[in-house]
Design a protein around this nucleic acid. Structure first.
Lengths: 161, 161, 161, 161
DNA sequence: GATGAATGAGTTTTCATTCAT
DNA sequence: AATGAATGAAAACTCATTCAT
């Protein structure tokens, strides 16, 4: 808490005006990170374009977000396993993720993706990106264009009929 | 530390006979988890069998391990983002992961997998499993046989030529 | 302080316009409570009536005040043991208590009460009421008419010649 | 807490080995004070002696305890109005007070005391002593032998038939 | 080797007080 | 006069580590 306050240019006590305790702060922070991440994911996404174009845009956005905001990504991952996140935040999060869910549905509707439970498809997309970015970061080998393209191809081929 | 000691049926102080401090304990614990996980991964793996059979066995083992030892999986994930793991453990880990690395190479050598950097292939496999298990756990929807098969198919199709 | 301000419908800072600090606020508050309590004690007291009538009125008033303003009574009791009350307030309090003191003196002058130090008589009266009300409150057994009459009888018999 | 630790010659953290938090510490402390006070009250009490002798002994013990352990008395009074004491401690306290209760009953059985609810009698005794000691303390006028005798007489006369 | 009470530095939380508006 | 966000010192509480037995 004191570190967060310092970073924010506040006294520790001031934090407690805005958040009643550490738990609340983490929940709010998590929700905001989630929100901003999802918003980022759909930047430049044009539903009018063919599906693969749109999906590629979103996929690249997700990857880029995880790379550029690695700290936020780590924070969110840690929250997941922490005792801090409460039911309320969990529900909010599920709500926020809906656009991504819709996108995957479209892929199935247009007969591009396999007939697999939408949630599983989504998790597959996320998983392949998250682990890829994490490993790139910790092995200190920045993702080359080729690497990214390979990741995308594997993801796409995995889901396509 | 005291909680770990209690769980181990030891006094707090006794822990410090076996481990110099918390950092060392976590590093050793992490290495052991890593070791035991890898060993589990290759249970019943018969290199004599055709590649897809062998790969399927390993893939299923990884998934099963993550499900059955979810707590260890979480611990290892947390370690990754923690300031505890030292260079030495990181290197050991890389060493341990070699059998998996070899397996992926074989997939490429036998022209089953795409011509993609072996590490990327491995990370892709791991990622799709990890995220899948994590989501199943936290959404409290146990993985059905169908779900597992779908996950495998996506993973395989993603990598195959 | 902030809680008091909120209860008063003020901003925290506004409190500090009227009271230099917490100590002053408590002293003023204590003095006012004391004042209002004493005033209450002598409601309907008619010095023209025989002593016992007058005394009974006052005694009943004290009891009623402690019951109806239990929170104020508690506040005053707590102040007594706190490091907040200053000499000045103590003196003021002693001044305020004089009417009660006079009443007890009258009891002695009229040869109704024992020849005991007036202060001791007064404290005896107060003590028997305070403890009685406190116990009734915390044991959640409201004082019945009989209980009150018994309390009065004990108090009276204790002091009468 | 730190002050208590210092007084006890311990580090603050050590306190938390013996008491899980401030609330528990206060409850335990209160119960012990209560216990030790009651024990003190019945020092030298000989049930074989005539009632008035026994009662006088106990009465004087109570007074002496409150005088000699004024700090404990204050602590107990403050606890009463604090949000700290829990139901459990309250019940324990009621249990402990039983010997005093019994003593008052004896007074009624032997037709010495008025036919008044035992609890009320007890509260009357306690109240007259507590307030007396408190006032003596804060007005810095130590109780003289005469004052004590007067207090006793008032208390006794109040209750006797 | 084993113990577990004790430590104290660090963290979270509270709250009286201030001050720019 | 009034506000209420900001402060920071102090309180409550935690936890890795030590050490006498």
């Amino acid at each position: 808490m004191s570190e967060i306050a310092r970073e924010a240019g506040l006294a520790t006590g001031t934090l407690y005006i805005y958040f009643k305790n550490k738990e609340e702060l983490i929940n709010v922070l998590f929700a905001r990170c989630r929100q901003s991440s999802i918003e980022n994911y759909f930047q430049n996404y044009d539903p009018a374009l063919p599906f693969k174009s749109g999906f590629t845009t979103v996929w690249m956005n997700i990857l880029q977000y995880r790379v550029q905001h690695f700290d936020k990504a780590v924070f969110m991952d840690q929250c997941y396993h922490s005792p801090f996140l409460n039911e309320c935040t969990m529900k909010l999060t599920k709500q926020m993720i809906k656009p991504l869910f819709k996108l995957m549905e479209r892929g199935k509707e247009e007969n591009v993706f396999k007939e697999i439970d939408t949630f599983s498809l989504m998790v597959f997309v996320i998983g392949s990106i998250h682990e890829g970015v994490k490993n790139a970061h910790y092995s200190r080998k920045p993702l080359t264009k080729t690497a990214v393209n390979n990741m995308f191809t594997m993801c796409w081929d995995g889901m396509k009929r």
